[in-house]
C-alpha cells in the first residue's frame, strides 16, 4: 500500500512515539514484574509482535520485507527470552554477569532439539514453501497432508492392507493410480519427517557449540556486550553445527530420499491431472513434451544436413 511522503513521515513519527511508550512499558514490566501494559499484543512474544504489527500497519509487501520481518522477530525473540530470564534470575546483587550467563544457558537449553533451531523458523518453513510449489498444493493442504496418518498403528496397518489390495473392474487403473499416489505420499511423508529430524539435531549441535564459544571467550577474557554479538555467535555456532550434519552420509541419503519421493508424488499427481485433461479434450504435458522432442530432433537433423551441404553455421 503506497503512501505519500508526508503521510509516510507522519505515520512513522506516530509509530515511533507509540513504540517508545511501548518499550518503556515493557522495560518497566521486566523490572517490576508483569502488568497489563502489553497493550493487547501477544503477551508471549510482545517484542516480536511489535515488528509484525509494524509491517502490517505499513502495508509493506512480501519479499525482502518478509525476510526482514522474520529475522527481526528471531532477533527480538532471542533478546526478549534472554532478558526475561535475566529479570527472573537477577537478585540485584553484584553477580549480574552470572545471571546473564544463566539466562543465555536457559535459552540454549530451550533451543536444544527444537526443530526450528530455537527462535529460527525459516529452514523447515522454506522447505515447506518449496515443497508446496513443487507439488502444486496450498500451504494448508500440504500441512494437513503431512499431519494425516498420525493415528494408531492399527489404522496405519488397515491403510497398508487397503493399499496392497488388487484393483479390478471398470475403474481399475484409477484405483491403482490412487493407491500408488497414496503409497508415494506415505514414503514422502516419512522422508520429510527424517529431514525434519536432521534439522532438529542442528539446534542441539548449535547450542553445544555456542556454549563452547562462550567458554572460549571467557577463557580469553573477551566480552559479550550486545544482543547482536550474541546473535552473531549463534549464527557462527549454527553454521558449524549445520555443516557437520549436512556433510554426513546420513543427511545425503535423507536429502536424496526427500527429493526422490517428492518427485514420485508429483508424477502421481501429474498422471491424474493428465487423465482429467484428456477427458476434457485438453492438451497434456506429455503431449507437449513429445512435440518438443520431435521439433528438437528435427532441428538437429536440419543442422547436420546443412553442415553436410556446407551451408550451415556449423559447417
Amino acid at each position: 500500500m503506497p503512501m505519500s511522503d508526508s503521510n509516510t513521515s507522519n505515520w512513522i513519527n506516530d509509530w515511533q512515539a507509540l513504540q517508545r511508550q511501548y518499550w518503556d512499558a515493557w522495560g518497566t514490566t521486566n523490572r517490576d514484574g508483569p502488568t497489563d501494559s502489553t497493550h493487547g499484543q501477544d503477551a508471549e512474544r510482545p517484542w516480536a509482535e511489535s515488528v509484525d504489527a509494524w509491517w502490517r500497519a505499513a502495508g509493506v509487501p512480501d519479499g525482502v520485507a518478509r525476510n526482514l520481518s522474520a529475522q527481526g522477530r528471531s532477533f527480538l525473540d532471542m533478546g526478549q527470552d534472554v532478558l526475561r530470564q535475566f529479570t527472573e534470575l537477577d537478585s540485584g546483587g553484584a553477580d549480574a554477569a552470572q545471571a546473564w550467563s544463566q539466562a543465555v544457558q536457559h535459552w540454549l537449553d530451550h533451543a536444544r532439539g527444537d526443530q526450528d533451531w530455537g527462535w529460527w523458523t525459516r529452514p523447515f518453513g522454506d522447505y515447506q514453501q518449496f515443497a508446496t510449489h513443487m507439488l502444486g498444493l496450498s500451504q494448508h493442504q500440504y500441512e494437513e497432508l503431512l499431519a494425516s496418518g498420525d493415528g494408531e498403528a492399527a489404522v496405519r496397518e488397515q491403510l497398508e492392507r487397503w493399499l496392497s489390495l488388487p484393483a479390478f473392474g471398470y475403474t481399475r487403473e484409477i484405483q491403482e493410480d490412487l493407491q500408488s499416489l497414496i503409497r508415494a505420499w506415505l514414503a514422502h511423508r516419512a522422508a520429510t519427517e527424517a529431514y525434519r529430524e536432521q534439522l532438529a539435531q542442528v539446534g542441539t549441535g548449535a547450542a553445544e557449540r555456542m556454549q563452547a564459544r562462550i567458554a572460549a571467550m571467557a577463557e580469553a577474557g573477551e566480552k559479550i556486550s550486545s544482543l547482536r554479538q550474541l546473535f552473531d555467535l549463534w549464527v557462527d555456532a549454527g553454521e558449524e553445527a549445520y555443516s557437520e550434519i549436512a556433510f554426513s552420509p546420513e543427511y545425503r541419503r535423507i536429502y536424496g530420499d526427500l527429493v526422490n519421493t517428492m518427485m514420485v508424488v508429483r508424477q502421481g499427481i501429474q498422471k491424474m491431472l493428465e487423465r482429467k485433461a484428456r477427458q476434457n479434450g485438453l492438451p497434456t504435458r506429455t503431449e507437449l513434451d513429445t512435440a518438443h522432442a520431435r521439433i528438437h530432433e528435427l532441428r538437429r537433423e536440419m543442422r547436420e544436413l546443412k553442415a553436410s551441404l556446407g551451408q550451415g553455421d556449423d559447417s
Binding site: 518499550w23 509494524w54 533478546g79 546473564w100 543465555v104 550486545s226 544482543l227
Partner: peptide, 25 residues
C-alpha cells in the same frame, strides 16, 4: 564470565533496531 550486558542496554538495542526498521521503511 564474558557477559557484560545490562537490561537497559538490551532494551535500548531493541529500540534502536526498531527505529532503524522504521526509517528503513
Amino acid at each position: 564470565n564474558p557477559f557484560s550486558l545490562s537490561p537497559d542496554r538490551v532494551l535500548e538495542e531493541a529500540v534502536t533496531f526498531n527505529k532503524r526498521l522504521a526509517s528503513g521503511f
